[in-house]
């Protein structure tokens, strides 16, 4: 097993309509998935937040040691590892029979391509409307800025705010 330099804090990129915020979240007690989908909290506490405009995502325009992010304004969160976005019950091989469905979706300013991990026949209505979770996991994600196609973000997974989704498409694998 490879030893990874990790500290109990998860670093991710948090995207709103206009900003990219690189920050750390304490995931020692609850996963990022659980934190975002907790209906009892409206804000997500962040540490060491570094703010960039979505137009110039490589430039750090401001930094704050502690901040709170309104989850309702968050379009998506991008993290390096798949396991950091999937629900806990899916992380240890308990999802026998699961398959990956390739999808394309849009949120304000961003286009997303990746895979949903599903256990049964695709039912978009159920995924988008009925399930309680506000944020759904998209694996092996590739995020592109809508107005700057040269700016691409990639990661093991993202959590997408369902309320921000504009278009949601299934992609048939060739």
């Amino acid at each position: 097993m490879q030893e990874v330099l990790q500290t109990g804090w998860l670093a991710g990129d948090f995207f709103s309509h206009s900003y990219r915020i690189s920050a750390q979240v304490d995931v020692r007690r609850r996963t990022l998935y659980e934190l975002l989908n907790d209906p009892m909290t409206a804000f997500l506490p962040l540490e060491d937040a570094y703010v960039s405009s979505i137009d110039r995502p490589g430039d750090i325009s401001a930094a704050y040691p502690a901040s709170y992010l309104a989850k309702s304004n968050l379009s998506l969160v991008l993290v390096p590892q798949r396991d950091d976005v999937v629900p806990r019950q899916q992380t240890y091989g308990a999802y026998a029979g699961a398959y990956l469905q390739r999808v394309f979706l849009t949120v304000p300013s961003l286009e997303v391509e990746g895979y949903l991990r599903l256990s049964a026949r695709v039912d978009l209505r159920r995924i988008l409307s009925l399930e309680n979770e506000s944020f759904i996991a998209v694996l092996d994600a590739r995020v592109r800025a809508s107005l700057r196609p040269d700016v691409v973000f990639t990661g093991g997974g993202i959590l997408v705010n369902k309320r921000h989704i504009g278009v949601f498409c299934l992609i048939e694998e060739q």
Partner: peptide
């Protein structure tokens, strides 16, 4: 760095870095 995107790599190299490693990084890689 935890900012591990291609735009971050460009920013790091533009600032004068020789190498860019995104966290999490394995000890062997580092």
């Amino acid at each position: 760095t935890a900012r591990g995107q291609p735009v971050d790599r460009e920013a790091a190299l533009a600032a004068g870095a020789n190498e860019y490693l995104a966290k999490p990084v394995t000890m062997a890689q580092l």
